[in-house]
Amino acid sequence: MAHTETTDLASFSIACAIGASLAFSISDITVRSFSASLPLAEVVLFRSFFGLAFILMIFARGQGLGAALRTRRPLAHAARGLFVVISNVTYFAGLAALPLAEASAIFFVAPLLITALSAVILREHVGPLRWLALAVGMVGVLLIIKPGSISFQWAVLLPALSALAYAGMHTMTRNMGLSESALTLSIYIQLSFVVFCSVMGLVFGRGDWAGTGHPAAEFLLRAWVWPTPVDFGLFALAGAASATGGYLIGQAYRCSAAGLVAPFEYTALVLAAFWGFAIWGEVPGAVSGLGIALILGSGVFVALRERARRLPPSAKRASGRR
C-alpha cells in the first residue's frame, strides 16, 4: 500500500512538473512579446498583480491573504524570492537578445544543477545510472547550444545565471516543503516580484539609463509607459500562466525528490522549440533535434528508474499535512 501511494505521488509530481512547464512557456512567450515595446520590470509587475489575484481566486479556496502569508520562515521566503527574481529577470533579458530555443537550451542546465544540489545539500540519493542519464541530457543541451558556432556575447551568460538562480530556488523549495504550503510559496514569489519591480520602476522608470542599443539592456532600462488595453489582456494571460506554473512546480518539488521532478522540466524545451517555430519561424536544425531527443530520453529513463524503486516519503506526508 505504501509503495502504491508513493508511486501515485510520484505520478502526481510528474504531472505537476509537465503542467508547470506548459504554463511557464505561455508566460515566457507573452513576456517576450513585450521585449521591443515595454520595460521588463513593468511587464513583470503587472503580470504579478494579475498572478496574485489569480492565486487568491483559484488556489486559495477561500483563504484570505493574511492566512496564506502566515509563515515561520520569512527569511527563507525572502531568500527564495531573491533567487526567483534573479532567475526571471536574467532569463527574460536574455530572451530579448537570443533566439527562444537557444536561450531555453542554455537555461536547461538548471535541472542538472538541481539534481546535483539535491545530492550535495539535501542528501538525496542519486545513483550512478541517474547521473549518467543526466549527463546524457547535458550532452543534448550542448548540442542545442552549439557552443563552437556561437559568437560569444555577454547575453549568453544571462540564461546561464538564470539557471543557477533557479536551481538555488528549487533546492530551497524542496527544503521548505516540510513547513510551507504550495499556496504560501506561490504568494511570496509574486510579492517578491511586486517589491523588486516597484523598486526598478522608481530607479529606472524615467528611462535615463536607456539608449545602450543592446536589446537585453533596453528591455531592462527603457522608460515606463502606460499600457494599452491589449497589453493588459496579455498581462492577465501571463499572470494566470505564471501563477499556475508556480503553484504546480511548488507542488511537484514539495511532494517528490528533486531528482525525480527536475528532468520533466525539460518539457519546456520542447515547447520552446514549438513556440519558436509557430510564432517566430525559428526552425531547429538536425543537431538541435538530436539534442532534444537526448534530453527527453534522459528524462524518461530517470522517471522509469524512479517509478521502479521506493521513493523516500514526500515532504507533504512527512509533515502530516495535505
Rank of each mutant, 00 (worst) to 15 (best):
V261E: 04
G250S: 08
L237E: 14
P263Y: 12
A258I: 00
A258M: 11
V261Q: 07
L248M: 10
Y247H: 09
T267Y: 02
L260R: 01
G239A: 13
P263L: 10
Y253K: 09
A238M: 06
G245W: 04
L260C: 14
A243C: 04
Y253W: 05
Y247D: 07
L248N: 11
V261K: 03
Y247S: 04
A236N: 15
A236V: 09
A243I: 09
I249C: 07
A268Q: 06
A257H: 08
T244R: 06
A241F: 07
E265C: 02
L248R: 05
A236T: 10
V261N: 14
A268T: 07
T244S: 15
A258H: 01
A236M: 09
A243Y: 05
A240P: 06
A252L: 08
V261R: 01
G259E: 01
G250R: 08
Y247R: 02
A240H: 04
L237I: 03
G246D: 02
I249P: 00
A252F: 08
S242E: 14
F264R: 10
G246Y: 13
Q251D: 15
G239H: 08
C255F: 15
T267M: 15
G245T: 02
Y266T: 00
G246C: 13
P263A: 08
L260V: 03
F264L: 04
P263G: 06
A243Q: 03
R254I: 15
A240N: 06
G239W: 04
A262M: 02
G246F: 10
A257Y: 01
A238T: 08
A252T: 11
F264A: 05
G259M: 04
Q251S: 08
A257L: 09
A258Q: 00
L260W: 10
G259C: 12
Q251F: 13
Y247Q: 11
A268L: 05
A262S: 03
S256N: 10
G250K: 09
A238W: 04
A238I: 05
T267I: 05
A258C: 13
Y247V: 15
T267C: 15
A258T: 00
I249N: 01
R254N: 10
A262E: 06
G259T: 05
Q251W: 14
E265F: 01
P263Q: 01
A258K: 02
A236R: 14
A240M: 04
Y266N: 10
L237P: 08
Y247I: 13
A262F: 12
G239I: 00
L237T: 04
E265W: 03
A262L: 03
G239K: 13
A240F: 11
G250V: 07
L237M: 12
